[in-house]
Simulated scan of single mutants.
Amino acid sequence: MNDRSLSHSTFTIERDYKASAAKIFHAFADPQTKARWFDAPTDEWCPISSAHDFREGGREHSESQFGQDGPVSRFDAYYHEIVPDTRFVYSYEMRVDSTRLSVSLTSIELTPVEGGTRLTLTEQGVYFDGLDNTPERERGTREMLDVLAAVVED
């Protein structure tokens, strides 16, 4: 018999960008712009497929492979609420190969601050069977937000 478990957690990341809320929002909403930071290929990461329907009730899909023969990571999201240039809320599932790692609810808020915009990301996750964990997810999210900075900041 396999040991089955769930773990739950919440983390929040605040990041100030030297960019307008509209520019940051556009980086999430526009498929070509989002591909520059969310699905950007690297020596270790190769995009396979993606679909982007950024609207309330819309879905997003991204699938990439680690290396030439490595595992395939799959992100599938559903957008619950979108308030242009202000906030959006989505839920998503992460898989590696065919194994579900987690399901999360994420909110992103954009608040004007002196010199730009503060992005506040809050994620509530459920991790399955010890296959993923909060520190790793938070680290990966911070790295992704670093790449976003290169796209939105002048």
Rank of each mutant, 00 (worst) to 15 (best):
S5H: 07
L6T: 12
H8W: 13
S9Q: 09
S9F: 03
F11P: 00
I13A: 05
E14W: 03
E14D: 13
D16V: 09
Y17W: 05
K18V: 13
A19P: 00
S20W: 02
S20V: 06
A21Y: 01
A22K: 15
A22L: 08
I24K: 00
F28N: 00
F28K: 00
D30H: 07
Q32C: 05
T33K: 03
T33G: 01
K34N: 07
K34D: 02
R36I: 02
R36N: 07
W37K: 06
A40K: 11
A40N: 14
P41E: 08
W45F: 15
S49A: 15
S49C: 06
S50T: 12
S50L: 05
S50D: 12
H52S: 14
F54I: 07
R55T: 13
R55F: 08
G58Y: 01
G58V: 03
E60T: 11
E60Y: 01
H61D: 06
H61I: 05
S64P: 01
F66A: 12
F66L: 14
G67I: 11
Q68P: 10
D69H: 14
G70P: 02
S73K: 07
R74Y: 03
F75N: 02
A77D: 01
H80G: 08
E81V: 15
V83S: 12
P84T: 09
T86E: 14
T86M: 07
R87P: 01
R87E: 13
E93V: 15
E93L: 08
M94K: 01
V96L: 10
T99K: 11
T99E: 14
T99I: 14
R100H: 08
R100Q: 12
L101M: 15
L101G: 00
S102G: 04
S102L: 11
V103M: 08
S104G: 03
L105K: 03
L105Y: 05
S107L: 04
E109Q: 12
E109V: 12
L110I: 06
L110Q: 00
V113Y: 08
E114T: 13
G115F: 10
G116C: 10
T117S: 08
L121K: 03
T122L: 09
E123T: 14
